Computed example of a mutant assay.
Amino acid sequence: MPDVQPSPEPFRAQTAPGALDDLRARLRATRWPDVPEDADWSLGTDVGYLRELVAYWADEFDWPAQEAALAALPRFRVPVGGLGIHFVHARAVAPAGPVLPLVLSHGWPDSFWRYSKVVPLLTDPGAHGADPADAFDVVVPDIPGFGHSDRPAGPPLNSIDVAALWAELMGVLGYERFGAAGGDLGSHISRYLALDHPERVVAVHRTDAGLPVFSGERSTLSAEERDWFDAVAAWGASEGAYAAMQRTKPGTAAFGLTDSPVGLAAWIVEKLRGWSDCGGDVRRSFTKDEILTNVTLYWLTGTIGSSMRMYHANAAIPPAQLARRVEVPSGFSLFRGDVVRPPRAWLERTTNAVRVTQPARGGHFAPFEEPELYAEELRAFFRPYRTATAR
């Protein structure tokens, strides 16, 4: 008997009122740490800012309204590789030419939320002042252990594993060939889609290249590359404590972050501020409602621990895998406010880099911070590859 493909089922999240009551009670019962005067953000999340955010979360934040707004996206779940995968699947609106399927991979600390603003810009460009011929069919899955996808019961999945799941998911949706794009962990996943499924991925776009892996002689690197390696090392020494924890002992941190919504918010908000193009004022990149929507998704799904475990899984990827060169046509949009942006020489050393741009605004969360700019970057990069596939 031939294998029967699983059929995606429409998905709509519904939060029980009791879960919100429990959340508000925990927020109001917070034990606040002592903080030296004028510490600001120098020791981590600023307590003054967080107190303000938490008061809003407890008394004013309208989660049902945010949940309803997210429900406007066409969302589904389907079993893939033995796991239930939650994803957005938005088809192109009134396309004026070949439609390119595009799988967008998010990172940490977020979920499909990262792309919630950009989906309509990509599926209906004509309604947003762009060329209707640039329409995409957009697929945005939640990584297993994030958001509304299942949490692996056994060992956590690494980026190679997730790339294989995405290739299978795109097949379930009827897409033999497609484009891939992502940032943060999603950059790794998109890279392995291109490496392991080059016959299916027509082109791959990333907003970063990850941290550098190089086993050759440092003297063979360009001066620009050597300077970048030094900058990455300095960034890791001053900003990388979270990653060391998540790579080595994520389970320890998970106890506190799963039990305390304020602890969870502090862990995530510091990264939203530090990695965005906000000039030190997180309010320039995200509203309170936007921040709390992301954090509340983590809280209600209980996925902070499972999301951090992916760092542990990725740390065990063999160096030979990390050193593979991507031959699929690759594009990079290195947004101004992102961290440790690689030089073009490194991108050309490690990929078939056909387009590299440096947008003047936006940071690590570019699809959310600057959705119009990010959408235009994707339209421009993928335009030459539309005839490589059909809807």
Rank of each mutant, 00 (worst) to 15 (best):
D3Q: 14
V4P: 06
Q5D: 15
P10T: 02
F11W: 04
R12T: 13
Q14Y: 06
P17C: 11
P17Y: 07
D21P: 12
L23Q: 13
L23F: 11
L27P: 09
T30Y: 07
W32D: 07
P33Y: 03
P33I: 12
D34E: 14
D34W: 12
V35I: 10
E37P: 14
E37I: 12
A39N: 15
D46I: 05
D59N: 12
E60D: 08
F61S: 03
D62R: 06
W63K: 07
L70V: 11
L73C: 02
G84D: 15
G84E: 13
H86I: 06
H89F: 11
R91Q: 15
A94Q: 15
P95E: 11
P98L: 01
L100E: 04
L102A: 14
V103I: 13
L104S: 04
W108D: 04
D110V: 13
F112E: 04
Y115F: 15
V118E: 05
P120S: 08
L121S: 02
L122D: 01
G126L: 04
H128G: 04
A130L: 09
A130C: 12
P132G: 05
V139N: 03
P141L: 06
G145M: 00
S149E: 00
R151F: 11
P152I: 06
L157G: 00
A164Q: 01
L165D: 01
W166A: 02
E168P: 05
M170V: 02
M170P: 01
V172W: 02
L173E: 06
G174L: 08
Y175K: 02
Y175F: 11
E176M: 07
R177M: 10
R177E: 10
A181G: 03
G182E: 02
G182L: 02
D184T: 04
A194Y: 01
V202P: 00
A203P: 01
V204N: 01
H205M: 00
R206T: 08
G210M: 12
L211R: 10
G216Y: 04
S219V: 12
S222A: 06
R226E: 09
R226P: 03
A231F: 04
E239D: 05
G240E: 00
A244E: 15
M245E: 06
Q246I: 09
R247F: 03
K249F: 11
K249D: 13
A253K: 11
D259F: 13
S260P: 00
P261L: 04
W267M: 15
G274V: 14
S276I: 12
S276G: 13
G279V: 14
T287D: 09
I291N: 07
I291V: 13
T293V: 12
N294Y: 12
T296R: 01
Y298K: 05
W299E: 01
L300P: 00
T301E: 02
S306I: 07
S307M: 04
M308A: 09
R309T: 15
M310E: 14
H312A: 08
P318W: 01
R324E: 07
E327L: 10
P329R: 00
F332Y: 07
S333I: 03
G337R: 08
W346S: 13
T351G: 04
N352M: 11
R361I: 15
G363L: 03
H364K: 11
F365K: 03
F365C: 09
F365T: 07
F365W: 09
A366K: 00
E369R: 11
E370H: 11
E370T: 12
E370F: 09
P371W: 00
L373P: 05
A375G: 06
E377M: 07
F382R: 05
R383K: 14
T387E: 13
R391H: 13
